[in-house]
């Protein structure tokens, strides 16, 4: 599934001061089918806003977004999408299984495929023991993993992860990394947004660096390897360096 952003602009009006705040400015981007696309940027760079526009939570002011040729405002577009929000919070009194059933049913999944898919995912994400427990009793990491199960249960083609690694322990991170690689093998498109540069570096085919609503830099895998050789200091990864360089530029500007 291709996702194309064309000249996207979005501003919010802050409710208190009535000032216009530009969240995304003149953004052009295209995510190709089957790639893992990473978005990095400091807090308030507009990453989450961008993802929320893809899901139709927020309307953009101008420009256009097309998801495999469809508008994000059409509910049907989301049939083949999976979303993991930042700091996911789900209904207190439901179990992971209830949530996944809801996710599968609303996506129009065939009834007899639902249960095997749930069992499979819960096993992968190591939540089988807690499938009937209420989400209120879950730890942060478990909630995060349940969120991933929720996003993936209907086997979507486009997967959007907003900070999938936050709150996970090293074991959980490994689970997610393996899962993402597995999904890539299956030819899914993944948009991935994170503060943790290390994960992005490891997984993504292409990386976009955003700051203050603007797209600052695009990097692809070939560039990684060439840049990696020129790694200047020990103990700093190249992406971190590029990231800091890009972001610090704005101060000088």
């Amino acid at each position: 599934m291709n996702v194309d952003f064309e000249q996207i602009n979005k501003s919010f009006i802050s409710s208190f001061t009535r000032k216009k705040v530009h969240a995304v400015i003149d953004l052009n981007l295209s995510v190709k089918s089957g790639e893992i696309f990473g978005i990095v940027g400091p807090n308030g760079a507009g990453k989450s806003t961008l993802l929320k526009m893809v899901l139709g939570f927020i309307k953009y002011d101008s420009g256009s977004i097309s998801i495999a040729g469809k508008s994000p405002m059409e509910p049907e577009t989301r049939i083949n999408m999976g979303y993991l929000p930042e700091n996911p919070y789900y209904y207190d009194h439901l179990s992971a299984e209830d949530l996944m059933k809801f996710s599968a049913t609303t996506s129009g999944m065939n009834k007899k495929n639902i249960q095997p898919s749930i069992d499979h995912l819960l096993k992968i994400m190591n939540l089988e023991h807690a499938r009937k427990r209420h989400l209120r009793t879950y730890s942060k990491g478990m909630t995060q993993r349940a969120g991933i199960c929720f996003a993936l249960v209907h086997d979507p083609d486009l997967i959007i992860f907003d900070e999938p690694m936050s709150g996970l322990d090293p074991l959980g991170r490994k689970l997610v990394v393996d899962l993402v690689l597995d999904l890539k093998e299956k030819g899914k498109t993944i948009i991935f947004c994170s503060h943790i540069l290390n994960d992005i570096e490891r997984l993504c085919d292409r990386i976009a660096i955003m700051d203050k609503g603007r797209l600052k830099k695009m990097l692809n895998r070939e560039q990684f390897f060439s840049e990696q050789d020129k790694n200047i200091k020990k103990g700093t990864s190249w992406l971190e360096k590029i990231f800091i360089d890009t972001v610090e530029n704005r101060v000088e500007q």
């Binding site: 899901l55 509910p75 999408m81 999976g82 979303y83 929000p85 996911p88 789900y90 996710s103 609303t106």
Partner: peptide, 17 residues
């Protein structure tokens, strides 16, 4: 309030639904 709506609206449900 708690953003649980994300998990509902990320599904193919329209706002009216």
């Amino acid at each position: 309030d708690k953003r649980t709506i994300y998990c509902v609206l990320s599904k193919p449900l329209s706002r009216t639904e």
